[in-house]
Write a protein that binds this DNA or RNA. Structure first.
Lengths: 341, 341
DNA sequence: CCTGTCCTCCAAACCGTTTTGGCCCGCATC
DNA sequence: GATGCGGGCCAAAACGGTTTGGAGGACAGG
């Protein structure tokens, strides 16, 4: 059942039927109701392909997932972010298109999505320092929102980010207040922007009390359980062992906990741990009471917000760039306590 | 730059240009080269919206993600499956559309995707026993492939699945061979089809040596670390404590390990553990040598295969239903050993 | 009665491709 | 020299909507 058929069945022109269904004012209320009723009865659904061609809009947004050979982006964050963004899209009648491409093809993919008219805008994931994608997208004129920020980008652009620096600064301060002086950092890969900011927050807090970061207890690696474990083994057997840990992810925190307990120590009493908790649906940080003390910020919420921002940018492409800085909350769990003397 | 402009620039008709670019035979080789060269030079890219309308094909496939209030599908599996499927799609010029919808709207979403012509086919995720979606899609005539199977479905349909029953049967047999007689099962939610099959494999293996499953050491729950931990606590303090565990996921296995070590026992010596390892990119089961003995099957590979199957179904909608049963390999790690006497 | 203004509706153009149904010309065949 | 047959090209009709630019009629105002 298409528009023309519906129109003849109603004894109206396609024009009027189209207008009636799309809520234009120049159609009599009585006929509008008649049209709407008939449309429902024959469950007419306008062909999306035709609408897209006629209106020149794609009614779709893209998420380009570079399939790194060293696979970094296919991370645990991803599915929750997508869930949040996807909710927003479906509520607004937009499609979400995922492009999984080898990372060297990422730029080409953006160009393609744009020039073939497949999407109206894109979300940029996992920005690196001085990320080249920003310049490219800006030049192309394709609306985009970055999840995160890219330090050093000369241009202004739309982004949604967590205040990673402050989160880790507060967490470090909290550990310092508990008397810890040897605080290990199990960070993410530091070519990623968020990881750099977290390290700065950590260093700043140390510097504020006259401490220098000790490279012997700082690691930067993919945020897996095993790497967390490895980092903790190293920091716990250092010349001056760490008494506390700051972890960039839940998984790393679990690895650290394993190392702690594996040495017969108890987390929260002998060694303190704070993690960054992305509040993932399948990696809950405890139930009633959190296991880990954590800086928490929902990545799903970030997905929602990024999507909303992108839709608003698409609607008004010439508006000034928008920014949304989320604050992580510091939640108290069972993994922190005063530094043993 | 669109087809018409390119055509006039070449002094040809749109017809000929279109045919030249699409490799039709009725165009002179010399002109074809001229056209191709010009297309590249002006980097002409055909408008996807127009192609879709003209050909009547969506050149896109859908993945509908029901956003369960009890969030079951937004699981760790998801991102790897998507990565695998996405690779296949981009290689074949198809778009992947993700629809995140409240689960009561799932059927409506399928209807919409189909009747508005947004997709040419869909992948069905996380089938339950006697899953109603299969009947619905069959009736609609929308091509689909199920990732997993739905026990009890009367109709035949396309699916890609792992031999979950045999995997757990073999794992159980292996533990029995090592002398274990009290084998706990930390299963997934048993309204999910894969979980049922795994339990059957487990029970069958026990039955084969004359043992009955002990409900006191069997759990069925979401596959999280905490649930694994809880299940292990229970099974280790049962009247007759379990000496071995079969876990449906890596995360559960990690929880079980924590419980074991928390009681001062050692995994692999005092208590054996076998997990089902989906080979996720951010949850690697060890490096050189696996931590957990496991039945392993790459969910990413399953994604690739499902996507390929779907594309073939779309190409030949009337072919007989296809099935692809993957076998999980049993890999030996450090988490299993003879039953202590 | 004439004019102007709404209110409703419509015919036709348009979006950018693919595809159908020729057309023209050169060349071989009889 | 007519006929047949491909090869190479094209005009125009789809595809299924939206949007532009009226048209016709009712009704109010002068």
């Amino acid at each position: 059942m298409n528009l023309k058929q519906l129109a003849t069945k109603l004894g109206l022109s396609p024009t009027t039927v189209s207008r009636a269904l799309n809520g234009y004012p120049e159609v009599n209320e009585a006929t509008r109701e008649r049209v709407v009723a008939a449309a429902r009865r024959h469950n007419y659904r306008p062909n999306a392909r035709a609408i897209r061609l006629a209106t020149g809009r794609a009614l779709a947004v893209g998420h380009v997932i570079p399939l790194n050979t060293r696979s970094e982006i296919m991370n645990p964050i991803f599915s929750d972010f997508i869930a949040g963004a996807g909710e927003t899209y479906s509520r607004n009648g937009y499609d979400m298109i995922l492009s999984v491409v080898p990372d060297e093809a990422e730029e080409t993919t953006y160009r393609d999505l744009m020039s073939r008219g497949t999407v109206d805008g894109v979300i940029v994931h996992a920005p690196k320092t001085n990320d080249p994608r920003i310049r490219v997208l800006k030049d192309m004129g394709l609306p985009f929102v970055v999840h995160g920020r890219a330090t050093g980008a000369a241009l202004d652009y739309n982004w949604v980010d967590v205040n990673n620096r402050r989160a880790f600064q507060r967490a470090t301060e909290f550990l310092l207040d508990l008397g810890h002086r040897h605080i290990a950092l199990a960070n993410g890969l530091e070519h990623m922007d968020f990881a750099i900011r977290r390290r700065i927050g950590y260093s700043d807090a140390l510097a504020a009390v006259g401490l220098n970061p000790d490279p012997g207890i700082m690691t930067s690696d993919e945020m897996t359980e095993m790497n967390g474990h490895r980092a903790a083994e190293r920091a716990l057997t250092a010349a001056i062992p760490a008494t506390a840990f700051l972890c960039a992810s839940m998984l790393q925190g679990m690895g650290v906990r394993r190392a702690i307990e594996g040495r017969g120590l108890r987390m929260g009493r002998d060694v303190s741990v704070i993690i960054f908790d992305d509040d993932l649906s399948y990696l809950r940080n405890g139930e009633a009471v959190p296991i880990f003390t954590a800086t928490r910020s929902s990545v799903r919420e970030a997905g929602r917000l990024s999507a909303e921002m992108l839709l608003s940018v698409i609607a008004q492409p010439d508006a000034a760039p928008q920014h949304h800085l989320l604050e992580a909350e510091l939640i108290l769990g069972q993994s922190t306590g005063p530094c043993p003397t």
